[in-house]
């Protein structure tokens, strides 16, 4: 299988070319957000810390960078905990999420409805993924510590398409 190169923010045309199971290399801007940031963002959807249109959220809370480093270890956290919040963010234009593990039926339907995509990264590989992060900027929720929202500039970040815009689910495919 040929690896596809993709760029964030995502475009509708770009998303349509992605199929579940595709190996992709992602470059561009993505945002980190996990449990506490999702709770806070969805409390007031009118006052979000960044414009969601076309953007990708990476479910991660990195370790702090040691001196001279851009970021510490930065792998995916388990996605299902974000499931209750994801459909409302997709509705506002969020186009992609990156995490690990299966998503709820509601999230799958929302991904299909809003023509978005769910990428998976491998759990426990935070040191590996940190190598593809070129720049970080703290943009919101500083008080949440490791759960603050960071803007990440990534280059050739390796991912698999877990759920494509047609709603096909990689985890279901391997079960059948």
């Amino acid at each position: 299988m040929k690896t596809k190169r993709i760029f964030a923010p995502l475009t509708s045309e770009g998303i349509k070319k992605l199929e579940t199971g595709d190996e992709v290399l992602l470059s561009g801007i993505i945002y980190t957000a996990r449990d506490a940031a999702h709770q806070r963002m969805t409390k007031n959807l009118k006052k979000l810390p960044f414009d969601l249109k076309g953007q990708i959220i990476y479910y991660t809370g990195p370790t702090p960078p040691s001196p001279g480093k851009i970021i510490g270890s930065c792998g995916p956290t388990t996605s299902y905990r974000m499931d209750p919040y994801t459909p409302s963010l997709l509705k506002l234009g969020l186009k992609g999420t990156i995490g690990k593990g299966e998503r709820s039926q509601e999230v799958k339907e929302a991904i299909k409805r809003y023509s978005a995509v769910y990428f998976i990264a491998f759990g426990g590989c935070g040191a590996l993924y940190s190598q593809f992060i070129k720049k970080t900027t703290l943009i919101a929720y500083l008080d949440l510590g490791c759960e603050s929202i960071l803007k990440l500039e990534v280059e050739d970040f390796p991912l698999l398409v877990g759920i494509d815009a047609c709603g096909r689910d990689i985890y279901q495919q391997q079960k059948t």
Binding site: T60, P62, G72, S73, C74, F122, G126, A127
Partner: peptide, 15 residues
């Protein structure tokens, strides 16, 4: 990942 963590003195996982 295990090799990179050792080489870069990084935690194996962010958790």
């Amino acid at each position: 990942n295990i090799k990179i963590a050792q080489r870069e003195k990084l935690p194996v996982c962010q958790d």
